[in-house]
Design a protein around this nucleic acid. Structure first.
Lengths: 132, 132
DNA sequence: GAAAAACTTGACGTTTACGTAAACGTAATC
DNA sequence: GATTACGTTTACGTAAACGTCAAGTTTTTC
């Protein structure tokens, strides 16, 4: 249990590079333990890396991702902090819902174009019934 | 009908800048008509601008957006073209579905954190019933 | 018809998110 | 114990997507 990973272990596992992991660290997104100079990545670090990658796939900047990840951590604050945290969460929720709406719209558009294609193919299929 | 718009009209309408619209044109994403030197934007151009903005919100690069927009145009090709187009559409569909899955996961995570916050607030609320 | 406003094309600057190379220390391997 | 493999920091390079002048034309407005 509580295994640790080298920087290239992590890089390989998540299809990224050591350079990238160091950069994320320099930007404060992760903070692996050290054994002398060497970085040691824990399960917690792996979780954060996964969150970073997901954030990137959703088009968030590293700065935004940093804030988002922060949300997960803070969850030990007190009242005022918690209220503020909930507000931030609500913001992010709205962003995500908006993106999801964009995606639905895109999917529906693509379906439309695909339908047009199929119709056209059927149309062509009716006559040209000689070639493979 | 068939109104036309100046570059700053469009920029204002979509919350962008003339510079950006010119840049997108230089990258082949839009191709407004010209009256002498001046650019004249049509309804079709507006539609494309909307697609570009949506693509950006979803985290696609301009190059990707160019290809996506291309999908909408090509819909007048012939069989081979159409098959290829359908394949590309399917690719995009998968990307979008993946992003949607990422979003669902993010939303669910945020819900989790929010729940923790509410629980903690309730907990605190039980005792500290003296301060505003 | 002169000034102001809006448009044009360069061209260089800027931010983000790394890539790449240099120069070095350490650890495993044959 | 020399080589190879992996790690470190520092530093400069780069692609994408514009921002920001500059210098000039055209168009509108008073």
């Amino acid at each position: 249990m509580t295994a640790v990973f080298s920087i290239s272990d992590l890089a390989r596992e998540y299809g990224t590079t050591p350079r990238t992991l160091r950069f994320w660290e320099s930007e404060g997104l992760i903070a692996p333990a050290r054994e002398g100079q060497r970085r040691l990545y824990s399960q917690r670090d792996r979780t954060r890396v996964k969150l970073i990658l997901r954030g990137q796939r959703l088009g968030f900047s590293l700065a935004e991702i940093a804030e988002i990840i922060g949300l997960y951590d803070v969850a030990a604050g007190e009242t005022a902090q918690l209220e503020l945290l909930l507000a931030k969460i609500e913001e992010r929720r709205k962003e995500l819902l908006a993106k999801r709406a964009d995606i639905e719209a895109s999917l529906s558009d693509l379906d439309g174009v695909a339908a047009t294609c199929h119709a056209r193919l059927d149309e062509i299929g009716q006559k040209g019934r000689s070639d493979a």
